[in-house]
């Protein structure tokens, strides 16, 4: 049986306690809001994309459960310094991981540290907590002014 420790891995607990890239960026050219009405999780993402199309900097603010905060923190680490052209693929890879069959082993090569969130598959009501930040970042990338939701 799945153990709680597999959901609340130390990495997740750490990122929740001390989220990376937390707070407003001094300079940014994209931003978006995310909101999960069922949980009350609120997120704001800031993005600085340079002329070469590289995500130069990214940060987030907001409040939510440990899964949503840790996921946002890990996401900022995963996309910072990477080309914007690769974002959609990353988004899809993450989305696939958290909704895939339990038997499927997460592709750690592609996912890197994000693989620690694979445990949410076991907790269907918590998947939305993990993906809210990704939907919000997507809104920021596309300059959508609609508040991102996961449903």
């Amino acid at each position: 049986m799945f153990d709680l420790r597999d959901l609340y891995l130390q990495v997740i607990v750490d990122h929740n306690k001390a989220p990376r890239n937390f707070g407003k960026l001094a300079r940014f050219n994209h931003e978006a809001d995310g909101y999960n009405p069922l949980c009350g999780d609120k997120l704001h993402v800031y993005l600085d994309i340079n002329d070469a199309g590289i995500i130069e900097d990214v940060s987030f603010e907001g409040e939510g459960c440990a899964i949503s905060v840790a996921s946002a923190s890990l996401m900022t680490e995963a996309v910072k310094g990477t080309p914007l052209s690769g974002f959609q693929k990353k988004f899809e890879t993450f989305q696939h991981m958290v909704t895939a069959d339990l038997e499927e082993t997460p592709d750690e090569e592609k996912l890197g540290k994000l693989a620690v969130l694979a445990g949410v598959r076991e907790f269907p009501s918590r998947i939305k907590c993990a993906v809210l930040c990704w939907h919000t970042l997507k809104s920021a990338v596309t300059d959508s002014h609609v508040v991102a939701k996961t449903e």
Partner: peptide, 13 residues
């Protein structure tokens, strides 16, 4: 120290 949703999941187990 624990968000209500994390609490809900943990006590459920």
């Amino acid at each position: 120290s624990v968000h209500p949703h994390d609490l809900g999941t943990i006590v459920d187990r």
